[in-house]
Simulated assay, not measured.
Amino acid sequence: MEYFFKHDYVMTFLQGYNGDRSLLTILGPLIATLPFAAQHVENSKSGTMKYLVGRMGYKKYFNSNFIINFVISFITFAIGMVIFFIVSFVLFSKDLNMDAYRGMTGVSAYKILADKSAFLYILVIILHCAFVGACYSSVGLALSYFIKNKFVAWIGPFIIATIGSLFAMFVGLTKLEPMAIFDVSRVQGMTPSFVISYLLISILLAYIFSYMKFKKDIENDEEI
């Protein structure tokens, strides 16, 4: 509430995204995995997986799970952030503080877009966070093929992001911080191409390793 009469709607949104009191960067991995990342574990325990694999084949089952998980996490994150933006727009000032805005976006990976339009920048941030959330969720789903526990699927990406970021800071490789990929204003010198490549490689590795594990388990009759 102390910010209520101090910030315009753009700064309110950005403070919620990566401000000094925002928890979204830390809690993002947990938010992303809750909707669907543990579904494979649930399917395995309920016997649904046996039925689905029997009808669809293991390849189609795996791909469907992976894609649905990605899409649901993406939509969940996007809708949540759109709602937050609408609330910020309705409740807070429309008179933008451009000095504060430039201070928040000065080292952003998407600074070029931020300089063109605050609304465009916010739209890109929403899409970016939704994509990162889907990436987190893909990692959580991948972990569930190795450790068949829904809590591992939920908190695994959170633990990886936290430990990975601490380790990256310790060795001086701050650009590789998982949290810096979510918060694109966290580390100076980030570029859109680096961020996108980082995310695509993460999703690809999650897909390949989990698919190989699932295929091996099916062939050894460990899943069915």
Rank of each mutant, 00 (worst) to 15 (best):
I122D: 04
A100H: 11
A37T: 10
C135T: 14
Y58V: 03
D20E: 13
M49R: 12
K175E: 04
F62M: 13
L23T: 10
V87S: 12
Y198S: 02
S44K: 15
M104V: 11
L204P: 00
Q39T: 11
I155Q: 02
M56A: 15
A37I: 02
Y101Q: 05
I86T: 11
Y121I: 09
Y3A: 01
E219S: 01
M169Q: 12
S185V: 04
V171W: 09
I147C: 09
I26Q: 10
M1E: 09
I147H: 03
K59L: 10
P178I: 01
G133Y: 04
S202M: 02
L200S: 10
Y121F: 15
F151K: 08
I160M: 12
K50N: 07
I181W: 14
G54R: 00
F214G: 01
G54Q: 00
S64Q: 13
I122V: 13
S93R: 13
I122L: 08
M169F: 08
V124Y: 02
V184D: 05
A114Q: 05
Y207M: 03
T33V: 08
F36A: 01
A37P: 03
Y3M: 00
Y101P: 06
T12N: 13
F131S: 13
Y207E: 02
I163C: 07
G172I: 07
K216C: 03
